[in-house]
Design a protein around this nucleic acid. Structure first.
Lengths: 346, 346
DNA sequence: CTGTTAGCGCTTTCAA
DNA sequence: TTGAAAGCGCTAACAG
């Protein structure tokens, strides 16, 4: 084993043809005689030849790699997103370079640089928190197609695909208001993301259109985690004028909120209405009790990949900003009778 | 933009040195004058030079890429595993090629081939169901270091890192027996994996050592999912002599089992003891009510990566089979008073 | 410490 | 249809 590397020359010699013929066969060109092709393929198999992409990439000054960088792979939303991307990227004959930044922009810089060095044809990025247009500028200037997912970055000059977070929050809060709630909290999340901002906007807009004021005491940030949810609801319940319902930044927060409510002997759904964006958990565990605002991560990944491939093919295209759909999935009582239905809200 | 590609020659010229000096700087060699290095680095930044790894890889006949192929990235266990791998691979100056096979061996063949073509230095593989030693043979013969994780493959001749599933099942069933259970079911999972086999072995061994017989009616396979758990428990409850406890193939199954019990107005934990291996969900959502047999996926990824890097450095090493630890995390009553503790079982 | 030279394995004109 | 020859951008001797 570990024999000398087998190259096109070896297989050309063994097949009694020239190496350019072999190259043509490798590329599935139709310019080559059927019999010759068969012969060459047989020899390839026989000698255990493996194609050397480094050489091909060098020669062609490009690679069939697309990169995907996510901010938190341990969040299954992003894992599903990557799977969606992979599916379409794959069937287009590309392979996927996947990197996880863990929300660290330093790490993000490194992985993007590394992908450039590997000559990726395009990049799908779910930016780490705090990423700015300037961080992406060198990449964008290089002319490599980029599509941003989940989190948009203002004025970065690239395509983006985000879900309609404002519409989702709007629908959720309208739903709560229709159920008679008047004190509705917004719990969890960090204020420095566009996602947070959009959800918050939907929340405020819904309150405003109902003539309710969104007292800032009802907006309580926290880590977007289960533990964060617990602290957020605890803080909310210490207010003079307590809320009776909450829209949670994500489902992990919503779970924490439920934990916190139960610790106070309140039953979520019956005594206190809880709605969460289902970024983190739902896709896999389908928590049946929780009303959520949902997006389909794999579907989003597929759309992002399609958009990117289109741009790669087009060479150079105007950036597009696409807003994907979001659904309000009503699965529990939010103050009265139990229901179970879902509707598109955007 | 999209200017001509900047190469080492350009930067050599601009810096007034030769291209091999530039190359040395690029590789962080200590053979180069500090002033020269600074000059070169300045020019590199100035011209926006991007290192071309395809060229370097071609020349050096190797790449700083390690591949990781997982059987189901939507399962957060594997996502966490990949994150663990990434962490150590990263800090060793490698990048990670991640591919998802979705349990399809055809796909697995393709991605492994693709990684070989890209010249990966080593491969971490969590094999798709049904993978056999023969499927890996060409890869192994090529001399590329490989470590198998989670699922071992008999006689494949490569290193492996799996968790001690038998010990985990043994501890879980002993625990149930100590609580007075005599009819203990094994629910969920497909019988064609080594993991299933190992867990089943622990289950049977525990029953045997207690003088109980493991009637095969109590072993009920199903998809390793929440829905699978529901059908499995339903089937179990239709037996003449019903079980009073169940060890579930994984936590998704365990959740389904809880669903099924509740549908019959039985409270999991109080009326029927449930223990699950926490492959799928726990790491992220920490279901507080369920007693589980746990492994730390990120830790496992890190260990696998370390093992692989060791082999890459060593050139050629004897395969090692490592069995990693598993913990029984007791979080709920399994028939009597509520407890909360965890212990290492292997 | 720095420059010269010769390829790595592949693709791609351009002829035959 | 196939063959010959010229590099892609980089590294690795080796000589200065």
């Amino acid at each position: 084993m570990a024999k000398e590397r087998v190259t096109v020359i070896d297989i050309a010699r063994a097949a009694g043809v020239s190496k350019s013929t072999v190259s043509l066969v490798l590329q599935g060109s139709s310019l080559v005689n059927e019999a010759t092709r068969a012969k060459v393929n047989a020899v390839i198999r026989e000698l255990g030849y493996v194609y050397n992409r480094s050489a091909a990439n060098l020669r062609q000054a490009k690679s069939k790699i697309i990169g995907i960088v996510v901010n938190d792979l341990t969040n299954s939303f992003f894992a599903e997103l990557a799977v969606g991307v992979d599916a379409v990227v794959q069937s287009a004959g590309f392979v996927q370079f996947l990197a996880n930044t863990g929300e660290k922009s330093e790490r993000q810089r490194e992985v993007i640089a590394s992908m450039r060095e590997h000559g990726v044809s395009g990049l799908i990025i779910s930016p780490a928190r705090g990423t700015e247009a300037a961080d992406l500028a060198p990449l964008v200037e290089s002319g490599i197609p980029v599509v941003l997912v989940v989190r948009d970055i203002a004025r970065a000059g690239v395509s983006s695909l985000i879900s309609d977070n404002r519409a989702g929050a709007l629908a959720a809060v309208r739903h709560l208001i229709a159920r008679g709630h008047r004190r509705i909290a917004f719990l969890g999340g960090f204020a420095d993301t566009a996602v947070f901002e959009a959800r918050m906007r939907g929340y405020r807009d819904a309150l405003r259109e109902a003539g309710l004021n969104a007292g800032d005491d009802l907006v309580i940030g926290s880590a977007p985690s289960r533990a964060g949810g617990v602290t957020a609801i605890e803080q909310a319940m210490m207010l003079e004028d307590r809320p009776t319902a909450a829209l949670c930044f994500n489902d992990a927060v919503a779970f924490g909120v439920c934990d916190g409510l139960r610790a106070r002997r309140l039953e979520p759904g019956a005594d206190f209405a809880v709605i969460g964006f289902d970024d983190v958990i739902e896709a896999k565990t389908a928590v049946p009790a929780l009303t959520t605002v949902s997006v389909d991560p794999q579907g989003m990944g597929e759309r992002a990949a399609e958009l990117l491939l289109k741009q790669i093919k087009a060479g150079r295209a105007e950036p597009e900003a696409i807003v994907g759909p979001v659904r309000l999935v009503i699965r529990q009582s939010c103050g009265s009778a139990v229901e179970r239905r879902a509707k598109e809200v955007s």
